[in-house]
Amino acid sequence: MPESDQSIGRKILGFFIKEESGTESTGTPATGKPAAGAPPTGASTPAVPRIPVNTGASNPTPASPASGAVDPKFAQHFADVLAQNNPAGPDYFEFRETLQSLASLGLTEEKQFQAAWASFKALAGTTDVSKLTTTANQYVGALTKDRDAFGKSVEAAVAERVGGLQNEQKRLQTENESLAKQLLAIQQQIDANTNRLTAIGGDITEQSAKITQNQQNYEVTFAHFTDQIKGDIAKITQYLK
């Protein structure tokens, strides 16, 4: 991804994810110069992001499933998706940036949205609120399209990693039933297959748990991003008439 998209991606990430004290969303100390892109594999674990509280923007109900979590790598991924789909000229992105800058001024939520809208109108030279809702929905659409692609990759991963092991498990179980009815001479083969079945059981449990947790983290992160955008859309529709 071009450097400009990376920069926008990090900026967008800050709109949706708030780090624990003193860190940026990438896990880098808040120096104003976050490292480009997501943390490399094997790097120290970044601070776990949390859903913003009392930011002045929408505060959606915590997403489910509860067993998932907002994952830093997916948060960075979604920020990059939004950056890649950021069109030229002012749109919902710039509106949300202005809205966030007003969070610390002690204004009511309605006043914050109205002030952000006034600033956006001057910047964009338009009085059409649909400019915000339309582009916000385009961002939701981009994230949804990415989610669909991710779902297909999960299905492929399950088929490759778990499906193959399950097929082998069924085959060996059937073979053992047959071998058990044969002469004692083949007992050694049965024992070998049984040992393999034990190993497969552990592999299935491990791989299934990894894939399920990864999918749950993705879903929660997806819901976290889209809920905030949809919440903003609802407030835009409510306050900016």
Rank of each mutant, 00 (worst) to 15 (best):
E3A: 09
Q6F: 11
Q6V: 14
S7I: 13
G9K: 01
R10L: 14
K11N: 10
G14H: 08
K18V: 14
K18G: 07
E19C: 09
E20S: 14
S21K: 11
S21V: 10
S21C: 01
G22Q: 07
S25Q: 11
T26I: 06
P29I: 09
A30R: 13
T31Q: 08
T31G: 04
A35E: 02
A35C: 01
A35W: 01
G37I: 01
A38D: 03
T41A: 10
P46S: 09
P49F: 01
T55S: 15
S58A: 14
P60Y: 05
G68Y: 03
G68F: 04
G68W: 00
A69V: 11
V70T: 06
A75V: 10
Q76F: 13
Q76D: 14
A79K: 00
V81I: 15
A83C: 08
P87G: 13
P87I: 09
A88M: 07
P90E: 10
P90K: 11
R96T: 04
E97M: 05
E97L: 06
L99F: 06
L99D: 12
L102W: 13
A103F: 03
L105S: 10
E110N: 09
K111G: 05
F113E: 03
A115V: 07
A118W: 02
S119Y: 09
S119P: 00
L123P: 05
A124H: 02
A124G: 06
G125P: 00
G125F: 07
D128W: 04
S130P: 00
L132K: 13
T133Q: 06
T133L: 07
A136E: 01
Q138C: 00
Y139I: 00
Y139F: 12
V140S: 06
G141C: 07
T144H: 11
R147I: 00
D148N: 10
K152T: 07
A159D: 15
E160D: 15
E160S: 14
R161K: 14
R161F: 02
R161I: 02
G163R: 02
G163M: 03
G164L: 04
G164Y: 01
E168Y: 09
Q173C: 03
T174I: 09
T174H: 04
E175G: 03
N176E: 03
L179S: 10
A180H: 02
Q182M: 09
L184T: 15
I186L: 14
Q187Y: 04
Q188L: 09
D191G: 01
R196G: 05
R196A: 08
L197Q: 10
G202F: 04
I204M: 03
Q207M: 09
S208I: 00
K210Q: 09
I211S: 07
Q213K: 15
Q213I: 11
T221Y: 02
F222E: 11
H224G: 05
F225P: 01
K230W: 03
G231D: 04
G231Q: 05
Y239M: 04
L240S: 10
